[in-house]
Simulated assay, not measured.
Amino acid sequence: MTLQPPAAPSTFRALPQPRHWLLLGSLLCAAVVAIGLGVQLIPGETAAELGVDQRLSLHHTAALTVLALGLNLLFSPVVGLLLTGVITLCMWLVRRDPVKAVAFFLTAGSGWVASEVFKLIFARQRPNPALLFDPLSPETGSNSFPSGHTCFAVALAFALYVLARGTRWARAAAAAGAITAVLVAWSRLYVGVHYPSDVAASFLAGSAAVVLLAGLWNRFAPGLVRRLPATALRP
């Protein structure tokens, strides 16, 4: 019987980050706050945005409805967490790269964390489904701003690009991630559970999350990885 050599310990890999990551992340967060304050303080802003949801609700088609509801399910908290967990386990157990697996999980999850923080700050009520012609997935509550689905889609797109970076699939992954995030944002308006400013702010919030996460990861993770025993870095 031939013995297989043990897998080489996983090594630290830096996440791509802008040079002034802390400044950029702070500015993106400030932009989200500015939008959140604007929709609360500008008279008639919410009513005007509701008109967009109402117009979309008047023009639902079977094919677009299937697409929108499918995206809403795929990027929902439960399914999104399951999807992220499956990819993370594949990286850990199949690709035998636990450090990169953790980096992927944290990056993808940072979008949800960012959305929950801003939701608590602004507590914006969702569009009233009773005012829509065809409410596809009636949701109520004070968690409209920003869209968690869209924040997660933005962060997941970045995380998948990180996995593909340095391969021939990098550009395709970046393009697919960007298109998917836009489609998820559209789906939340089509279904009628968010305002346009909710999904617009989500791109800023999700980007802020991954920028800050990348900076913190690159700053603190190398030291943590060096302190771990070699056995902890093998699946």
Rank of each mutant, 00 (worst) to 15 (best):
M1W: 07
T2K: 14
Q4A: 15
P6K: 14
A7K: 11
P9E: 15
S10V: 04
T11F: 09
A14V: 08
L15K: 00
R19I: 10
R19E: 10
W21K: 02
G25D: 02
G25L: 05
L28A: 11
C29P: 03
V32M: 04
A34D: 05
I35F: 05
I35G: 02
G38H: 04
V39F: 04
Q40I: 06
I42W: 06
P43C: 03
G44P: 03
E45K: 10
A47Q: 13
E49T: 08
H59Q: 13
H60P: 07
A62K: 11
A63V: 13
A63W: 10
L69M: 14
L69T: 11
L73I: 13
L74I: 13
P77N: 07
G80S: 06
L81C: 09
L82M: 14
G85P: 02
G85T: 02
G85C: 04
L89D: 04
C90D: 07
L93E: 02
D97S: 10
P98F: 00
P98N: 05
V99D: 02
A101V: 03
V102I: 15
A103W: 00
F104Q: 00
F105A: 15
T107F: 02
T107C: 11
G109R: 00
G109Q: 01
V113S: 03
V117G: 00
F118W: 09
A123I: 01
Q125N: 10
N128A: 14
L131V: 09
L131Y: 06
D134T: 14
D134G: 10
L136I: 13
E139S: 13
T140M: 14
G141Y: 00
G141H: 02
N143P: 00
S144C: 08
S147V: 05
T150R: 07
C151A: 10
F152N: 09
A153F: 03
A153S: 12
A155W: 00
A157Q: 01
A159I: 00
Y161L: 06
Y161N: 03
L163K: 01
A172C: 12
A173C: 13
A173W: 02
A174H: 01
A174I: 01
A174Q: 05
A176M: 09
G177A: 04
A181N: 06
V182L: 15
V182E: 09
L183M: 15
A185R: 05
A185Y: 06
R188A: 07
R188K: 11
Y190V: 15
G192E: 09
V193F: 03
P196A: 15
S197G: 07
A201F: 04
A201Q: 01
A201R: 01
A201V: 02
L204R: 07
L204I: 05
S207L: 15
S207V: 04
V210R: 02
L213Q: 07
A214Q: 01
G215W: 03
G215A: 06
N218G: 07
R219C: 13
R219D: 10
R219N: 09
G223W: 10
L228W: 10
A230Q: 12
A232N: 07
R234V: 08
